Computed example of a mutant assay.
Amino acid sequence: MTSTTAPPEVEATLNRLASYKNVQGVLILARPNGIILRSTGSLFALPPATAAAAAHAGDDEGVEGTSNGAEPVAAPTTSETARAYAKAAVRMVEAVGSEVRDVDEDKADDLRFLRIRTKRHELIITPDEQYILVVVQDPTH
């Protein structure tokens, strides 16, 4: 789980979302670059070996967390799955948002909510000016 200092109401909202039985993961992304500010949920959890390396990244003992036994290397704090979903979400928001603006003659309309359902997952994406909230849930529940 990636963590940054967030207001208590944001933490409460994330905990509430993550507590639903069908929610597999939640991402909060910075806009427009898609940097993962916060991730939670089983879908975005680090593999056990990577999580252990992240916990010991600051240790000077041992070889874990080093490159060629020399300088320490920062252990990843987000999973590859989280990064893939973040990249896809940003691209979808950009593409669909552009199409929404193209349809509106005054160019005053903006994308507010996007829901995509596949066989394995349902993505609920809520963009705003500074952030993108992505909730991934199991559509079979």
Rank of each mutant, 00 (worst) to 15 (best):
A86C: 07
Y85F: 15
A57R: 03
A95S: 14
D104G: 06
T13H: 15
P72H: 11
E105Q: 11
S39D: 07
T140A: 08
A52I: 01
N22S: 14
R101W: 04
G34Y: 15
T77S: 15
D59S: 15
K107I: 00
K107W: 07
A95N: 12
M92L: 11
P48L: 01
F44N: 00
R101A: 10
A84L: 06
D110Y: 01
F113W: 07
A30F: 02
D106Y: 10
D138C: 05
A18F: 13
A89N: 05
N22V: 00
A75G: 08
P76C: 01
A53Y: 07
S19I: 04
A74D: 11
V73Q: 14
G97D: 12
L46K: 04
L111K: 07
R101T: 06
L37Y: 15
D109A: 11
L27F: 12
P139F: 03
V93T: 07
I35P: 03
P32E: 13
A18G: 12
P76A: 09
D59K: 11
A12P: 05
L43F: 07
S19Y: 15
V26G: 11
R120L: 00
E9T: 06
T2W: 00
R31N: 15
G65K: 07
R16Q: 14
V135T: 12
T2E: 02
A53R: 05
T4W: 12
V96C: 08
D104A: 12
L46C: 08
L133N: 09
T66A: 08
I116Q: 14
N68V: 02
Y131G: 00
G34D: 14
L17R: 10
E9M: 07
I36E: 09
P32C: 11
I125Q: 06
G97A: 12
L27T: 05
L123S: 06
Y85Q: 04
Q24P: 00
A18C: 10
T4G: 13
K21G: 08
T81R: 00
T4A: 12
S39L: 04
T78G: 07
L14V: 13
R117G: 03
A45L: 09
S3C: 07
I125C: 08
T40A: 15
T77A: 14
P48F: 11
A12D: 13
D59T: 10
L14D: 04
V10F: 05
E11S: 03
G25T: 03
K21Q: 12
E64W: 13
L123G: 05
R115S: 08
I36R: 06
Y131P: 00
A51Y: 05
A95H: 14
S19V: 02
A74Y: 12
G65W: 04
P76S: 08
P76K: 02
I28S: 05
A45D: 12
E105F: 14
V26P: 03
A53G: 03
S67Y: 15
A49N: 06
A49M: 02
V136C: 01
H121G: 08
Q137F: 13
E99V: 02
F44S: 02
V26E: 11
L133C: 09
L27V: 05
I36F: 06
R31Y: 15
T4E: 11
R115V: 00
I28P: 03
R112D: 11
T78P: 04
D110T: 01
V93C: 09
N33V: 05
P72A: 04
H56V: 01
T50W: 10
V63Q: 12
